[in-house]
Computed example of a mutant assay.
Amino acid sequence: MLTLPPRDENGNVLPHDHEQIEDTDGIIRRVSEVQTYEKNGVRRLSSVVFKASTTGENPGMSVDLEALAIAAGVNPKLHVTTPRWVGSIKFVAGALREEGFQIGYEPLDEDPPHPANPFHGEVWGEFSKPKQRALRALAEWYVPIPGVEIAEA
């Protein structure tokens, strides 16, 4: 298990680059059907997949930390796949860091109807159009959505 993340006075996780997340670790981003689009007869991932998914003072891209799930004896592909999240992509932590992103641990408590997620993390940084393209280029399918491509047209 990772050390707990730094928090502000209100209990919110602060952006950080967690030293216990290894450069070789898999960083998983869940994808839903509504995060796809069709152009010229080809379905692709929407740019929203490569942007911050949280709002507020420290917006980040919500992810799951593959190594934590494996260490807990949980199949990470089953963990990230739900009726809402039918697919997922994977990044390598070191590649995200090379693009200037921070990767931190942010375990989530149960928030009905959402269950607790002890393997949750965040990716913080600048999600500009060039960075979104870089993230798209770094992504590979983890749990593919049949007929959907990662690459842009």
Rank of each mutant, 00 (worst) to 15 (best):
K90F: 01
W141V: 10
V42Q: 09
Y142S: 03
E57I: 10
F101Y: 15
V13P: 07
E33L: 14
R133N: 14
E152M: 04
R133E: 14
E110Y: 02
P130F: 06
H18F: 09
W141N: 10
L96E: 02
V13Y: 08
Q102P: 01
A134Q: 09
A67G: 00
P6K: 09
P83V: 06
I27N: 01
N75G: 04
P112E: 00
E66M: 07
N10I: 10
P83R: 08
I21S: 05
E19M: 10
S46N: 12
V143K: 11
H114R: 12
H79N: 04
I89Y: 00
P113C: 03
Q132F: 07
N75K: 14
G41W: 10
P83L: 04
L4W: 07
G56E: 09
I150N: 01
R97F: 13
Q20C: 05
G104R: 09
G147A: 06
A52P: 03
N10M: 12
S53I: 00
P83I: 06
E9P: 00
T82M: 09
W85R: 10
F91W: 02
D25C: 02
R133G: 05
G87N: 04
P115K: 07
E126M: 12
H79C: 04
I70G: 00
L135G: 09
V31N: 05
R30I: 04
P115I: 08
E106D: 13
I103E: 00
A153S: 06
W141R: 11
E57V: 07
Y105V: 09
A116W: 01
H79Q: 15
W124Q: 11
R43Q: 14
E110Q: 10
V148L: 04
I150E: 00
P83A: 07
A93W: 00
M1G: 13
L45I: 07
I21C: 04
E126Q: 14
V34P: 00
G121F: 05
A137Q: 07
P107Q: 03
K131D: 05
S47E: 08
K39L: 15
K51Y: 05
E98Q: 15
L2T: 03
P15G: 11
E22Y: 05
V63C: 03
V148S: 02
D109N: 10
P113S: 06
R44K: 09
V63R: 02
I150K: 02
A134H: 03
G147C: 06
V148I: 12
T55D: 12
L4E: 15
S62I: 12
V48R: 15
S46H: 15
V74I: 15
A52W: 09
G104Y: 06
E152V: 07
R43P: 06
D64R: 10
H18C: 11
F119D: 02
R133H: 13
E110F: 01
A116C: 02
V31S: 04
T81K: 15
V80T: 14
V74M: 11
E110P: 00
W85F: 15
K131L: 13
E152G: 12
D25P: 06
F50M: 12
S47H: 06
Y37G: 06
I27V: 15
G87E: 07
A95R: 07
I89D: 00
E152K: 04
L135P: 13
G121N: 02
E66V: 05
S128D: 09
R44T: 10
I28F: 03
V42Y: 01
E106P: 00
D111K: 08
P130V: 08
A52D: 11
E33I: 13
P118G: 02
P113W: 01
